[in-house]
C-alpha cells in the first residue's frame, strides 16, 4: 500500500515536501486502522512524526488531513482509503513538524468560549440538579473531544483564526448557553455578538462533515443565533 506523507523538519528542511512510503501487503491486516499503518511506517523511518495517544478515538490527538479530508487516524479504517493515501497536517494551522501542528490558537479560542459553568447561586448540599429534558439539551454538544478536525476544516477559521472562535469553540459556547444550570447566558450571548466571534460562520458545514464524533457544530452555531434572536425580540 502506497502513502504520500507531508514532511517538514524546521531544523533541517528549508521547505516542506511529500515523501513516498510503501507498506508491504503482508503487513496489512484486516480491520487495520490508518494509525496502525503509520506506526508500522514509523518503524521504517523513525523520524516520521505525528501525535497519538489513546488509539481509540477518545483523546483526539491524531487528527490530520487524510486524502484531503480531516479525520482521526486511529478510527479511520485503512480499507476505506484510496491509495496512494495522502497525509498532510491540518490545513490552516502552523506546522511544528511533519503531521504535528501548533494548536495554541485553537485552545486560545476554546478558552475564549469560557467552557465552564457559571453559577453564583449558593451551592446546594447535593449537586446542581437538572430535569432529564434539560439534560437532553446537552446531547450532541458535550461529546466534543477537541481534536480540531472541524476548526481546521473551516475556511472562516483559516481566514480569521485570531478573531473567529471556530466551530469547536462555538460548539462549547452552545453547550453552556444550553445548560439550564448556567447563569451567564446573557453575558455569553453578548460576548458573541460582534462581527467576528460567531458571525464569521457562513454555514459552509465542513465542520459537520468532518467531525469524527458525528457532532454538528453548524447546527449548534445556528442554535446560538436563534437563541440570540429570541432574546432580542
Amino acid at each position: 500500500m502506497e502513502f504520500s506523507i507531508y514532511r517538514f523538519n524546521p531544523e533541517t528542511d528549508s521547505a516542506p515536501y511529500m515523501q513516498d512510503f510503501t507498506l508491504g501487503d503482508d503487513l496489512v491486516e484486516p480491520g487495520m486502522m490508518l494509525l496502525d499503518a503509520l506506526l508500522l511506517l514509523k518503524e521504517q523511518d523513525d523520524s516520521l512524526s505525528f501525535r497519538r495517544s489513546c488509539q481509540h478515538g477518545v483523546c483526539g490527538s491524531d487528527g490530520m488531513n487524510i486524502n484531503g479530508t480531516n479525520g482521526l487516524a486511529c478510527i479511520m479504517p485503512l480499507k476505506d482509503l484510496k491509495a496512494p493515501i495522502v497525509l498532510r497536517p491540518f490545513p490552516g494551522m502552523p506546522v511544528i513538524r511533519d503531521l504535528i501542528v501548533d494548536m495554541e490558537n485553537f485552545y486560545h479560542q476554546y478558552r475564549e468560549a469560557e467552557p465552564w459553568l457559571v453559577n453564583d447561586s449558593p451551592e446546594p448540599e447535593v449537586e446542581r440538579l437538572q430535569s432529564p429534558e434539560d439534560r437532553d439539551q446537552l446531547d450532541g454538544l458535550y461529546e466534543c473531544i477537541l481534536c480540531g478536525c472541524c476548526s481546521a476544516a473551516c475556511p472562516s477559521y483559516w481566514w480569521n483564526p485570531d478573531r473567529f472562535l471556530g466551530p469547536a469553540a462555538l460548539l462549547q459556547a452552545a453547550r453552556f448557553i444550553q445548560d439550564s444550570r448556567d447563569e451567564a447566558t446573557e453575558e455569553r450571548l453578548e460576548r458573541l455578538d460582534d462581527a467576528y466571534r460567531l458571525y464569521r460562520c457562513h454555514g459552509i458545514m465542513n465542520c459537520t462533515q468532518v467531525c469524527p464524533k458525528g457532532l454538528n457544530p453548524a447546527k449548534a452555531i445556528g442554535d446560538i443565533r436563534r437563541t440570540m434572536l429570541k432574546r432580542s425580540v
Binding site: 455578538d193 460582534d194 466571534r197 443565533r225
Partner: peptide, 12 residues
Amino acid sequence: MSVLSGQRAWLL
C-alpha cells in the same frame, strides 16, 4: 444589541 452587532447585520 451593540453598535457593532453581528446579529443586526445577519438579521438585516
